[in-house]
Every structure is written in C-alpha cells, then in structure tokens.
Simulated assay, not measured.
Amino acid sequence: MPLLHRPDDTPAHRLPPQVKIVAALAAVLCVVSTPRERFWAFGLYLALLSAVWVIARIPPRWIATRALIEVPFVVLALALPFVAGGPRVEVLGVAVSEPGALAGWNILAKGTLGVLVSLTLAATTSPRDLIVGLHRLRVPTMVITIATLMLRYLEVIADEAKRMRTARICRGHDPRFLWQVGATARGIGTLFVRSYERGERVHLAMVSRGWTGAMPDSGRTPTSRTTWAAGLAPAALAAVVLGAALWP
C-alpha cells in the first residue's frame, strides 16, 4: 500500500478520506450495474477517471504499470470467446462464441475500471487516512482493526522476506537454480513462522502504547456539504451515465 500512495497537494488529495471512499464505492457500483452491451458507457467512465487523474496529477504510465495486477483476468477474458459455447460469429476471419465474447468483454471492461478506481483511491489517500475514513464512516471496529493490522503485517512480512533473502544469498543460495527450489520452499515456511512471531510482538507493542482498536482521529472539522458535493461529483456523473445506459 505505501508504494501505491503518491503524496501531493492537489484537490483530490485534500479531500477527506471518507468522501473519497464513498465516491469510489459509488463509481464501482455504477460500473458493475452497467449492461455489458452499452460499450459507449464504459468509454465515458474511463474519460471521467482520466479527468480525475489530471486533477490529481497522476501519470497514466504510473496507473498502467500497477494495473498489470489484473493480467490473469485479462487472459481469461481473451480466452472466453474461443472456449465458450453458443452461436458463433466471425471476427477478422476467426469464428468466436458470441456469448463468450460478451462475457469476456464484461470481465475485461468492468474488472479494469474497478482496478483503476481502486488505484486512484490508493494514489490519493494514504493507508492511515483510509483507516481513518473507514472509522468516520462508522465501519465496524473489528473490520477496522483487521484492516489496520493487515497493513502493518504486510510491511512485517516484506521486511522479514528481504532479510531472509539477503541471508540466503550470503550463504551461497541462488534461486535461479532448479535444484534449490526445496530451500526456497523451506524458506517460505520459515518466513510464515517468523512473521507470525513478529506480528505478535508488533501487536503487543501497539497495545503497550495505548492501542484501543481504533485509529486516533486528527480532530478535523466536520465535512461540509460543499466538500461532499465536490468529492462526489465524479460519482454523480457516473450515475448519470448509468441512468442513460439503463434507459430503454
């Protein structure tokens, strides 16, 4: 998560986190609810996102490189037209399944837009602010606690993995060789044990420093209606697009 946050001082970054969370959720719901046959609607959603990127000063290349996480879903979407059944149509001289092509497009378009919305939220909101935003939205305390410890635990595992990799390389381990896969597998098991033990120590340290299960709020003034309206403007435009797509 820290790698996904781009600190900056833009209108998008200055919005309260709870406003951005609600806007992102509403935008994703609009995308998911759009009929897959309304191709133009997905283009408008992408245009809205592009406008947000301009306001937040997020380079498209930065978004594109991190959106590669959805590659497995892209492969599935591209394979569906060839493996699905149903009526066949010819595309560039190749016979493909019409229901499969629509299903693949549905996965590709909605999945990609969902990932892009999530990346935009992560780029403009720090992990701590995300937790604070969930707290202000009255999300159950248990969910907030799990999310908080998960964010911290990811850093714990990454730190342990880096140290163990350095130690293995210093002892002559080279992960490029196939016969050393056993050592890599044992290292993964050791990483789980060590990260679990360190996670317990991290939790005890948090409790000893006054952790009560909730992130301390910064004491900001209540969010005004003007701020809510400005933050939800892209989601409102997405709702307009959805309404036009659902119009018979």
Rank of each mutant, 00 (worst) to 15 (best):
A84Q: 12
A84W: 14
A84N: 09
A84Y: 14
A84S: 15
G85D: 12
G86I: 15
G86V: 15
G86N: 13
G86T: 15
P87I: 02
P87V: 05
R88V: 12
R88S: 12
R88Y: 09
R88E: 13
V89Y: 04
V89W: 05
V89Q: 07
V89F: 05
E90Y: 07
E90N: 12
E90L: 09
L92D: 10
L92F: 13
L92T: 02
G93K: 00
G93F: 01
V94K: 00
V94G: 00
V94I: 15
V94D: 00
A95F: 03
A95Y: 03
A95S: 13
A95Q: 14
A95T: 15
A95I: 12
V96W: 01
V96R: 05
V96G: 08
V96I: 11
V96Q: 08
V96S: 04
V96A: 03
S97A: 09
S97N: 12
S97F: 05
S97P: 15
E98W: 07
E98V: 15
P99G: 07
P99W: 00
G100Y: 08
G100M: 05
G100S: 12
G100T: 02
G100L: 09
G100K: 07
G100E: 07
A101M: 14
A101L: 15
A101I: 11
L102K: 05
L102M: 14
L102Q: 10
A103W: 05
A103D: 03
A103P: 09
G104D: 08
G104K: 13
G104H: 12
G104N: 09
G104V: 11
G104W: 14
G104Y: 13
W105D: 13
W105P: 11
W105T: 09
W105M: 11
W105V: 02
W105K: 13
N106A: 15
N106S: 14
N106D: 12
I107Y: 00
I107M: 06
I107F: 01
L108F: 10
L108A: 13
L108Y: 10
L108W: 07
L108Q: 09
A109C: 13
A109H: 03
A109R: 02
A109Q: 07
K110C: 03
K110M: 03
K110L: 01
K110A: 04
K110F: 07
K110G: 04
K110I: 00
G111M: 07
G111C: 08
G111Q: 08
T112E: 00
T112C: 00
T112M: 01
L113T: 06
L113R: 07
G114D: 03
G114M: 13
V115N: 04
V115R: 08
V115T: 10
V115Y: 00
V115P: 00
L116W: 02
L116H: 04
V117Y: 06
V117Q: 05
V117F: 11
V117W: 04
S118D: 04
S118R: 02
